[in-house]
Amino acid sequence: MPTLLGVFDNPDDVAEVITRLRARELGALETFSPAPFDQIDEALDEKPSKVRVYTLVGGIIGVCLAYLMQIWMSYDWPIVFSGKPYASIPAYTIIGFELMVLFAGVLTLIGFLIVGGLPQFSTLKGYSARFSAEEFGITVDCSERDASEVEAVLRANSAKEVSVVDA
């Protein structure tokens, strides 16, 4: 299964190529861009990242843990404050909020690493340093049969160069 790489100068061309290749279902795409571009994001139209599930779970764990910890501590070393019961919700809300943010933040970082497959010691197929400078790249994993068609689409949308990175 060959992998083709197209190199571009303009994000609009990249967006156009993505839309066309997607429409014809010619193979899996990987896009390299030096910076985020709205038109590319729109063309990729990716599903929302799973990282947000980690954030939600982290937040819920944090807030529950905070209340449990404080209430346990209050009963373990009972001191009456202002005549309030040991397990009063309002008194523990601030720490509940803080731990919610902390756990949500830490789990977001963990989720980011897991979902993004990081740390990654080898670069992706087709990547080169210039895609972190000023050029754009698209790699397409396509079948032997479709290779010429993919190449035609890349060239038709002002690809500066098209090469086979993995035959």
Partner: peptide
């Protein structure tokens, strides 16, 4: 009302 927010009661 002390028990209004009391998780234990």
């Amino acid at each position: 009302d002390a028990d209004a927010w009391n998780l234990a009661n």
